[in-house]
Amino acid sequence: MHEQSLFASVPVHQHHELLQQLAGLTAMQPRHCLERRLIFKAYRKPGMAGRIGASQDLQQGDLQRLNKMLNGNMYYTQVVGPVSESDFGSTAPIDRDTQMAGMDDSKPYDSSSPSYDYERQPWKLEFRDIPEAGTRSAVTSRLMSSATLPRGDVVEAMNAWGYHFITEYVVEGDMFVLNDIAIFLHRVLHYPGGDESSLPRRQLPALKDMTLFEKSGSYVLQAFIIVQDGSNQETMKTASQHLFGLREQLKSAVLLEQADRLSLDTRAK
């Protein structure tokens, strides 16, 4: 899949008006989203690269592909989990084992008191390549892929795949959809304390204690279209034309632009 996008920086004083304008333009109410984003970085497992033995049964083509996979570029990748406002600042649910000991495991979790259960947090792995270089059209186009991960703790699974946890942050924003364009007006929130924990948090602090990454509170506007078949020039062209159409429509409010390619560089050096 390919993602084509345009970005704009939205100063905080313009945020409210822009929300209204987007609601008017898209004829929909904004969909508020909160996401936990965990950043993982690939590392080369010792002994994996350049291994030659036990390759007799592999076809030559397969071998090449495997070598490319193992020795090719390594990337940062994100694990994204949707959370809700009530997940913040809530306590962990009663331990499942205790509940089972009480013999009422037929009853689901006590949903009356808000609680955040890290073990039940759904996750999605989102991979984005570095944006394509030297494309003639002025949109950021990059290869992307996403996959659903098992709920709960992903670090172990990610480690097994050769990724280790770097950091995490929360993205807060509003989503709009205009025909085939998704419009995401968002900003990054930091966890208070700022201590770089080596594992994802199991508890979320209160939302009001979260600090802004960009101190003035500005937002990032991303308009994107996901194209299933990136090799189809026709659909890619249509998608970028749609994005240009949106840019025209919004140009007096915000200036949507191609992002700096290197700022979206996901290659791990």
Partner: peptide, 30 residues
Amino acid sequence: EFEYNIAPHHPHPVQPFVPLDLILRYMTTG
């Protein structure tokens, strides 16, 4: 469709301190 011509006046304009590039870079690599 319509185009909206908006003159972004604001009594207290606060320009972002961190440029978009750096925000995106942080979001990508942490």
